[in-house]
């Protein structure tokens, strides 16, 4: 009797599981099939360009607001008096992807893209500099 009482729920559960063999799978076959992430996704950083020029004016607000201290900005000026960053480094491995930098930027020059799977062989390769950040595509 006990055996039957124990077996019935097991069989019920099994029947339920078997039913699920015939519905569409809920998993993704990553990496062939990639998941669409939200518009607001906070992934890898990117410096925005406009006409081949960086939008960033090296004001240093993102550097000040960053809770993980991973941004380093150095300011310099062109001959016609425009300021731009001579150095803009982001240590991506230490970044916590909080999104404060893109919120703080007055020029909308830094952005966290929808790029979520980035990998490198060494940690050093994750210390991105200005030109690398500018090259990152909007995902």
């Amino acid at each position: 009797m006990v055996v039957i009482r124990t077996l019935i729920p097991l069989l019920k559960g099994l029947a339920f599981t078997i039913k699920h063999l015939f519905v569409k799978p809920i998993t993704y076959q990553y990496p062939e099939q990639r998941r669409e992430v939200s518009e607001r996704w906070r992934g890898l950083h990117r410096l925005k360009m406009d006409d081949g020029r960086l939008l960033c004016v090296a004001c240093g607000l993102c550097e000040a607001v960053c809770p993980a201290d991973v941004i380093t900005v150095e300011r310099t000026e062109t001959e016609d008096g425009r300021s731009f960053p001579s150095r803009f480094d982001v240590e991506v491995t230490r970044c916590i992807f909080c999104g404060y930098c893109q919120e703080a930027c007055p020029k909308d020059a830094i952005e966290l893209t929808r790029n979520y799977d980035f990998c490198e062989y060494t940690r050093e390769e994750f210390n991105l500099n200005r030109d690398q950040l500018a090259k990152i595509e909007e995902a």
């Binding site: 992430v37 939200s38 518009e39 607001r40 996704w41 906070r42 916590i96 992807f97 909080c98 999104g99």
Partner: peptide, 12 residues
């Protein structure tokens, strides 16, 4: 939640 916050665990 990801749709509004932009992350799945550490929403910030």
């Amino acid at each position: 939640l990801e749709h509004v916050t932009g992350a799945r665990i550490t929403f910030s």
